[in-house]
Design a protein around this nucleic acid. Structure first.
Length: 796
DNA sequence: TAGTATTTAATTTTT
DNA sequence: TTAAATACTA
């Protein structure tokens, strides 16, 4: 029978009232049945889910193992687990909390034999997918140049997200790409199964297939999970939607939390419609809106709402806040990307002098390529920064190599891993030999790993003769057999010894350390291998085999677990996408230009334009106290400088909440309040470049007509003219240097105790091309301001 | 087979 | 511009 709505006891009510606002409380104690929580940015969403789980377990006496909480990221799952543990203690461990993928993987490990895979299946990442795909082109009679593996992979992924089988997909194929993808999709899926491997999409799709083909299992899970809670529901795709729906079908205790205004993963197959249509799926659902924002100033929230208001379809909610009005939003017009980056660096230094910590700042850009200019400016000023979402640990070549050995030990059928390591380190098994091996395997009608095993067995005494004679040269055959025996030895060892011992054995038997040290960047790479060993040592206590399996699972599903350093001493650089869920006191958004945000690829597509808008909204709502929106007059795209118009998101903001400045923080384009008011706020330019001009006139003088396209769209711009004073160079040219040194000279600016060396070459334009060396890792930077200290080399 | 020259393409990326 | 992937040469 259903649980009846439990009255909240006065004591509990008091407890909750102290910690939650009334909407939050409603959400936490909502009765059984479908529940839609529309949680605006900064409205305490995580808190509400955690409290609701705690409430279910503590007050309604729902067994923790009967609660399933689903998130999109491991980080979100981790945070939630922590908060629930803080509320109900160790019992929280029994709550099933995880990502869609990790939860599905767990179920599949248990039940996948029901649909024709083995429990030891390997999970392929994007890279592995590509390797597999590339192998299939010749067989499909296709040219990877015409339809790139990347494009095909994304087609296949889209198809899987929509639950199209290869047959479904080929029926709907229309374009040439789709025909090609259809033919590869079928082979790809066969290839996966042959390798006993699944890709990320399969984790969801195969779970659905399992539910379909083994209804008893679905039923068991449905009964087990009396409450299902899903976070970030605006980002679910069709497969995830169906999973949730099926799981909750028995008890109908489904809580979903999300914000359609923050849906930014449509391009990955997510569909906002599932949150927008939740009420149709569950007409009896209860809706709670979390509309009070605890994060941002009134000004920032107001501007974000103005952006949000331009969306086509959305759930209505009215975000509000009791926070201060705060400062106006600073809109900076910079000359170019260097100027833009310099502005950010200067502003950070200025605010730091005012008491902000470096960890309070974040720079959020639309494209990763923006990070470079910013990094250069930061390095130049020796500002500490960290980039979120750079190359992941587990995606590094050396790490993937070693992991591939471990995977191959665990799953001998794993073709992709086998082909990855069979000649790494080099064993003289080149492309020719590998091709022969593939061909021979297909002649025998077996997989590559299987063929290799047969070849080795044929060496032994009394082995049956091979049906098709191996085509290899003696040398190649010896190498192949040698590799296979190596793998067999390692597999035997894996049965007996712990993971750390096995890891060391792999490294030793393959001489991997020597190999990688000899590569470029070898010491760093070797360091990564050592780091991987540290990760491995966490599994030291486990049984042989179990440790290996647990390790491989984590590698696949926790993809490097991007450790964002919690340091309060580094500025954070990240994309707008990866900013979701975070908050910072001060946020800079560069590239507020037409074609960047909204991105040019979204032009002309209403849905994609909406998504760009939501992306802008996400970025702005990350800011707690100060928000900077920056655009350039000129932006260099692929080497060619182009005039850039301000973003329509910029020009549609209410003027009275903005302050316009140039890249020195000086008032520019004085609309509304006039220049003096702005100038008094915007601080002095003295910190900018010591010894240089202390003040600049406004970039734009009131007066005549507008002619520059980059001014179009600014509020009030029509009455202004671009009669600007001569823009100063970004930083002073090295005046003193110019007299003493000549073009082509190599000079040293500084060297630091930590091994950092700043040196440069004077170039034609009076700029300097600078090389900053951090312990061996060279980095080229453009620099203007530092005075050279000594000449290292004269141009001849 | 490995290293070097040329060609090509360039949003976002929770798992 | 640049980075990566492919083609070409020693």
């Amino acid at each position: 029978m259903l649980d009846f709505f439990r009255m909240v006891t006065p004591a509990l009510d008091a407890f909750l009232t102290e910690r939650l606002n009334s909407a939050q409380k409603d959400a936490v104690v909502a009765p059984n049945g479908p529940l839609l929580i529309l949680a605006g940015a900064g409205s305490g969403k995580t808190r509400v889910i955690s409290y609701r789980i705690a409430y279910l377990a503590e007050e309604l006496k729902v067994a923790p193992e009967a609660i399933l909480g689903v998130t999109f990221t491991n980080k979100a799952a981790g945070e939630m687990k922590e908060r629930v543990a803080g509320l109900i203690g160790p019992r929280a461990k029994a709550v099933a909390l995880g990502t869609f993928h990790s939860i599905c993987a767990r179920w599949l490990r248990r039940y996948i034999s029901r649909i024709g895979y083995e429990a030891s299946f390997t999970i392929y990442d994007d890279d592995d997918q590509l390797s597999l795909l590339k192998r299939l082109y010749p067989d499909a009679g296709l040219n990877p140049k015409q339809f790139t593996p990347q494009a095909v992979r994304s087609e296949i992924s889209r198809a899987k997200e929509k639950l199209y089988t290869p047959a479904d997909y080929s029926r709907t194929a229309e374009s040439p790409l789709e025909y090609a993808a259809a033919s590869l999709y079928r082979r790809y899926q066969d290839g996966l199964q042959e390798a006993n491997a699944v890709d990320f999409d399969d984790l969801l799709v195969l779970t659905l297939r399992l539910f379909d083909e083994a209804p008893d299992i679905l039923q068991r899970l449905q009964r087990q999970y009396r409450h299902v809670l899903v976070d970030e529901y605006q980002d679910v795709n069709k497969a995830q939607y169906l999973l949730v729906k099926q799981l909750a079908d028995e008890h109908r205790n489904l809580t979903i939390v999300g914000d359609d205004s923050q849906a930014i993963y449509g391009w990955r197959g997510a569909n906002v419609k599932y949150i927008l249509e939740f009420e149709h799926d569950f007409p009896d659902c209860r809706i709670v809106r979390l509309e009070q924002n605890y994060r941002s100033t009134k000004t920032i929230l107001g501007a974000a709402r103005a952006i949000e208001a331009g969306l086509g379809q959305r759930h209505m909610k009215e975000l509000w806040t009791e926070n201060d009005t705060g400062h106006p939003i600073t809109v900076c017009r910079a000359r170019d990307e260097r100027d833009e980056a310099a502005f950010i660096a200067r502003e950070i230094e200025r605010l730091h002098a005012d008491g902000y910590k470096f960890g309070d700042f974040a720079v959020m850009y639309r494209m990763n390529s923006f990070s470079r200019a910013i990094e250069e400016a930061f390095i130049r000023r020796r500002l500490n920064y960290q980039i979120v979402g750079g190359p992941r640990f587990y995606e590094r070549r050396e790490v993937k190599d070693v992991v591939a050995y471990l995977r191959l030990i665990n799953n001998p059928a794993d073709t992709v891993s086998l082909e990855r390591v069979i000649n790494v380190p080099g064993r003289g098994i080149g492309e020719t030999t590998l091709d022969q091996l593939r061909e021979w395997a297909s002649a025998l009608g077996v997989s590559v790993p299987h063929a290799l095993a047969m070849l080795q067995e044929a060496e032994g005494d009394g082995a049956p003769a091979l049906r098709v004679a191996p085509p290899f040269s003696d040398r190649a055959a010896r190498q192949l057999v040698g590799f296979q025996s190596l793998m067999n030895d390692l597999r035997a060892a894996a049965e007996l010894e712990g993971l750390v011992e096995l890891f060391d054995r792999v490294i030793r038997r393959t001489s991997y350390a020597d190999f990688i040290r000899a590569e470029k960047g070898g010491e760093d790479r070797l360091q990564n291998v050592h780091e991987l060993r540290t990760v491995v040592s966490d599994y030291a206590g486990m049984d042989a085999g179990a440790g290996l399996r647990a390790f491989l699972e984590n590698v696949s599903l926790f993809g490097g677990a991007d450790v964002m350093k919690d340091s309060s001493e580094t500025v954070t650089l990240l994309t707008l996408h990866s900013a979701k869920g975070l908050e910072f006191p001060v946020v800079f958004i560069p590239g507020m230009e037409d074609g960047i945000l909204p991105h040019s690829r979204a032009q002309g597509n209403a849905d994609e334009m909406d998504e760009e808008r939501r992306l802008c909204y996400v970025g702005m709502t990350r800011a707690m106290r100060l928000l900077y929106l920056i655009h350039c007059e000129t932006r260099t795209v692929f080497g060619t400088p182009r005039l850039a118009d301000p973003s329509l998101f910029l020009t549609s903001l209410a003027e009275d909440s903005l302050r316009f400045v140039d890249s020195y923080g000086m008032a520019a384009n004085p609309v509304g309040g006039g220049p003096s008011a702005v100038r008094s706020w915007s601080g002095s330019a003295t910190r900018v470049a010591p010894g240089q001009r202390k003040s600049l006139g406004p970039l734009v003088r009131p007066g005549t007509e507008i002619s520059s396209p980059s001014l179009r769209g600014y509020p009030g711009a029509a009455t202004l003219s671009p009669g600007r004073s001569q823009a100063p160079p970004l930083a002073p040219p090295p005046v003193a240097a110019a007299a003493k040194y000549s073009q082509g000279d190599r000079v040293r600016h500084a060297s630091f105790g930590d091994g950092t060396v700043v040196e440069s070459v004077l170039t034609r334009r009076g700029e300097e091309e600078v090389k900053v060396t951090f312990d061996e890792k060279g980095m080229k930077v453009l620099l203007g301001a530092l005075a050279p200290m000594e000449i290292l080399a004269r141009a001849s």
